[in-house]
């Protein structure tokens, strides 16, 4: 993920970090010399402060740098627990950070769809990665990673990621009509009792998530260079649904889960 034409900081000696503490996972990116030096992703767990510190230490280790979290030149935090990162100089919302991060990895991106553990959002950006408009899910878990997690549990699938390939084998995706996670769970249980295959159920769940997010995103101008980020972007089934919904190919970065943390690191570099 190097961006040769970037106007961002280009010196090697200064080291920056972006820390994204989300509902499900904490992510950290160590950035210097206009490139990602290391990153880490861990479950957030019950203590957001510990998660923030641990993930940053891991990312520093992977970058091969011998510094503590307090010796980094500047740290910006983001994510729902952004204000609980004691070693961050500033906190910025994940919407702004995703826009910056996405612009860095795919400069032609003008629309970003991010589906995380607790929320989903669509962001319209300009050529510099500035947010032009955005929408975010209101209050309901349907259309988020949490919805998929619940369904993975009900259907006894190991992880959200592994649901993706399984759904590709579906011949007749089920229709999951509910937009509420709790009621959708009951619906899936009933459909399973009717003898629907697991593949068809999973494909139906992906359809429910994808169509809900697409409906929300249509409030924005959808450009052909659409990128998909967040943990759910690793699920090929949801990606496929979104591509069908928008009638276009969707780009997924090499590591879609760290885009918010990357954006925070880029903002940290720019702030110095």
């Amino acid at each position: 993920m190097n961006h040769p034409g970037s106007a961002w900081f280009d010196g090697m000696k200064m080291i920056f970090a972006g820390v994204d503490v989300g509902a499900a996972t904490a992510k950290a990116v160590i950035f210097g010399g206009n490139k990602i030096l290391g990153y880490s992703i861990i479950p957030t767990g019950h203590n957001v402060r510990i998660a923030a510190e641990k993930v940053t230490i891991e990312a520093i280790e992977r970058a091969g740098i011998s510094r503590s979290v307090h010796d980094l030149d500047y740290v910006i935090s983001t994510g729902y627990a952004r204000k609980a990162v004691p070693f961050a100089g500033k906190s910025v919302t994940e919407i702004i950070c995703h826009a910056k991060g996405a612009n860095f990895v795919i400069p032609e991106a003008r629309t970003i769809i991010d589906i995380g553990g607790q929320d989903s959002k669509a962001i319209e950006v300009d050529e510099k990665g500035n947010v032009r408009d955005f929408v975010m899910n209101d209050k309901c878990a349907a259309g988020t990673g949490r919805f998929l997690e619940v369904m993975a549990g009900v259907l006894e699938v190991g992880s959200i990621d592994s649901m993706g390939p399984m759904s590709l084998g579906s011949r007749n995706p089920c229709r999951i009509s509910s937009t509420c996670t709790i009621f959708a769970e009951s619906e899936v249980v009933s459909l399973r009792a009717e003898g629907k295959t697991r593949e068809d159920l999973i494909a139906g769940v992906h359809r429910a998530v994808g169509s809900r997010v697409a409906l929300m995103a249509r409030g924005l101008k959808i450009s052909p260079s659409l990128i998909f980020t967040g943990g759910v972007a690793k699920n090929i089934g949801v990606k496929k649904v979104l591509e069908e919904e928008f009638g276009m190919d969707i780009l997924v970065p090499e590591e879609p889960q760290i885009i918010g943390a990357l954006g925070a690191a880029l903002l940290a570099a720019a702030a110095s």
Binding site: V92, T93, E94, I96, D119, R132, F134, K139
Partner: peptide, 20 residues
């Protein structure tokens, strides 16, 4: 049904956008 915390991220992002 609604609280300041549930709306905070969107409002802060909007504020950042307007400031920029």
């Amino acid at each position: 049904t609604y609280s300041a915390e549930a709306l905070r991220t969107r409002v802060e992002a909007f504020a950042e956008m307007l400031r920029a």
